[in-house]
Design a protein around this nucleic acid. Structure first.
Length: 288
DNA sequence: TTCCAGGGGTAGA
DNA sequence: TCTACCCATGGA
């Protein structure tokens, strides 16, 4: 057994507050960001049980669990958090591209370009589907209900629930429809959950995929509910920043900043960010 | 009521 | 490849 604290060594300049808030995911359950204390909360179903993790950065990253962890659970929690916080991702090439623009670097510096993601591609895919054709307020509500209805509860406090596993979602169609209320997204999430639970899709294997970005994009487009926007978002999750996730927010930004409000085609949008090469997604993200 | 929001799937051209 | 239409949900 180890104690309830885990320390994560990070590269110099790593700032938890910047990484946690550079992307909207920190507002989606089972994440919660407390800006006052600079704490990223997460309810995580570790092998040894559902655990409330509180992540802070007094100097290095400190993770406090609400129970004593076995060494196996501590290792697993560390593995998941290093991935989620992108601690080991090398973005130095992107930094070099930003260095000549002081205003841009000011926007990038707090996070270093690290956009918070989830421990599993399953969770990132579902959450991406929950951002399509809806408002951000509804996305946060849907994620909250998904965890609240189907997430694994902590026995001592059943209000603390993890992100539900694929097999749980797959086995609870009625509850999904009646209580989680994802609208027409129910079908996509259910189909994805059943494919994973049934062993027909191995989403997590895509993390270390040797595929080229275009081939990986084609694989992602085969997932239910995943189209051009969602596949580009998931490529970003997978550290491939070549594709822009063109949605209404991106269109509005580009029209406002570069077209004085006038309409702009997708071809023109792509041309605007073409100079970013394989860093287009981040080039746009920190251009906002 | 009607529209639409950090789109996707499909049919038809 | 492009366009038109429909798709649950809930707030404006």
């Amino acid at each position: 057994m180890v104690d309830e604290f885990i320390r994560l060594h990070t590269p110099s300049g790593f700032r938890l507050s910047g990484v946690a808030t550079a992307h909207g995911w920190h507002a989606l359950a089972p994440y919660r960001w407390d800006a006052e204390t600079g704490t990223l909360h997460r309810i995580e179903a570790l092998p040894g049980g559902v655990t409330h993790l509180q992540i802070t950065q007094p100097d290095e990253i400190l993770v406090r669990a609400d129970r004593t962890l076995t060494s196996a659970d501590a290792r697993e929690a560390e593995r998941r958090l290093r991935w989620s916080l992108r601690i080991d991702e090398d973005l130095s090439e992107f930094h070099a591209l930003c260095a000549s623009d002081p205003a841009l670097w000011e926007a990038v510096r707090p996070s270093g370009g690290r956009l918070l993601r989830c421990p599993t591609l399953w969770e990132d895919t579902v959450k991406t589907i929950l951002t399509t054709n809806t408002t951000w307020a509804q996305t946060t509500a849907m994620a909250g209900r998904l965890c609240g209805v189907l997430g694994a509860p902590k026995p001592e406090d059943r209000t603390l629930r993890s992100f539900p596993a694929p097999d749980v979602v797959a086995a609870n169609e009625a509850a999904l429809i009646a209580h989680v209320r994802l609208g027409y997204r129910n079908a996509s999430v259910l189909s994805l959950a059943r494919s994973i639970a049934g062993g027909n899709i191995d989403l997590e294997s895509l993390r270390a995929s040797p595929l080229s970005t275009p081939d990986l994009r084609r694989e992602l487009l085969r997932l239910p509910g995943v189209g051009p926007y969602a596949s580009a978002t998931l490529l970003m999750i997978l550290e491939r920043y070549d594709e822009l996730a063109i949605d209404t927010a991106l269109r509005a930004h580009v029209r406002r900043k570069y077209r004085d409000g006038a309409q702009i085609t997708e071809r023109e949008i792509r041309a605007l960010y073409e100079p970013w090469g394989r860093w287009k997604y981040l080039g746009y993200w920190f251009d906002r």
